[in-house]
Simulated assay, not measured.
Amino acid sequence: MAEATTLRSLLSRQGCLTLPGVFDGISARVATSIGFDALYMTGYGVVASALGVADAGTATFTEMLDRVRVIAGACNKPFIADGDTGYGGLLNVDRTVRGYASAGASGIQLEDQEFPKKCGHTEFRRVIPLEDAVAKIRVAVDARPDRNFLIVARTDARYAEGMDAALRRAERFLQAGADVLFIESPESLEELRRVAETFKGAILLANMVEGGRTPYLSTSELASMGFKIGLYPASGFLTAAGALRLVYRHLKTTGSATGSEAPMLPFTDMNTLMGFPAVHAFEKRYGLADSHKK
């Protein structure tokens, strides 16, 4: 479960909050152990790790909700969870927001793409009519349990209709009650600055994807522009996939995983990360450890 510190209180501090993308129990535990103040459940990472397919609208609400529960159970940090398009119409958005909040998320990201949606740094994205998108944000705001559950309103209109349209949509989302504005994939530093200058005083999120469409900046650079959240959703799963490729290739070639260029966590450290000390303490407390010796 998330700790008492809320995302809203974290965002009231100076600077830009760094949110790493997590996608399963291991990544959530590692990010928590490193000391991040908050996390982000990446839809791309969840779909890739849980289903082994592209982030192209194939995941269902129940599949994503299950992963929200996993991450909430594996960490004690507040986190924003990717809610895609809300998995349907307005009733679905209502159910999605209530479900994510009940499962332990501290906020939800909702986007205005047509279904089936796609990763925000890929091709052929289209957006729904503006009034329909605004209605989804209004429903989300009404469905949340309290104001500490943040509604992150994302628009993909920069790709589909241009920056002017994206800014108009973001303004309407803000008027509808969104807490955080997320204009996906600006394609230059000038466009990032335009977003920040247009919405001075608002909580702005910038999505930093290695190899993506947006110039890749640090959180200190984003803070100097006026952004409050720097999202790094792909860093974890890109690194994990790269390390797996190295170690599996080495194992296939040599018949052994030792000596691979991929960094490998010692088994004892992995046991600690996953909570085995608590398991052993439990067994000792209830006499289970002694029974193993008989």
Rank of each mutant, 00 (worst) to 15 (best):
T219S: 15
V97S: 12
F36I: 02
A140S: 09
L90M: 11
A243L: 12
F23D: 13
E191C: 01
F227E: 11
R98A: 15
V180G: 01
A176D: 01
A170H: 02
T42E: 12
A160C: 06
R138V: 09
G57A: 05
D112F: 13
L231H: 12
R158D: 04
S291K: 03
P215K: 04
E171W: 03
A262P: 06
I203L: 11
L204Q: 04
E131Q: 15
D94P: 04
E161Q: 13
G21S: 10
F36N: 09
D84A: 05
G35A: 09
T155I: 08
Q175S: 05
R245W: 02
I26P: 02
L19S: 04
L91F: 14
K77P: 02
A4R: 00
F227C: 10
T96I: 10
D146V: 00
V152P: 01
L251S: 10
R95A: 15
A38K: 03
R67I: 06
A243V: 14
G88L: 11
T268M: 08
Y87K: 08
P116H: 11
R98H: 09
I128C: 10
F115Y: 15
A143D: 12
A4K: 00
E63N: 08
L90V: 14
D55F: 07
L110C: 11
G89I: 07
G86Q: 08
V141M: 07
M264I: 15
R194A: 13
R144V: 05
E190M: 00
E131R: 14
V46R: 06
E3R: 00
K117P: 13
S291M: 03
A289Q: 13
I203P: 02
R168S: 08
R13W: 02
A101T: 07
V70G: 06
A223R: 03
G287D: 08
A133V: 11
Y216F: 15
E111Y: 14
Y216D: 06
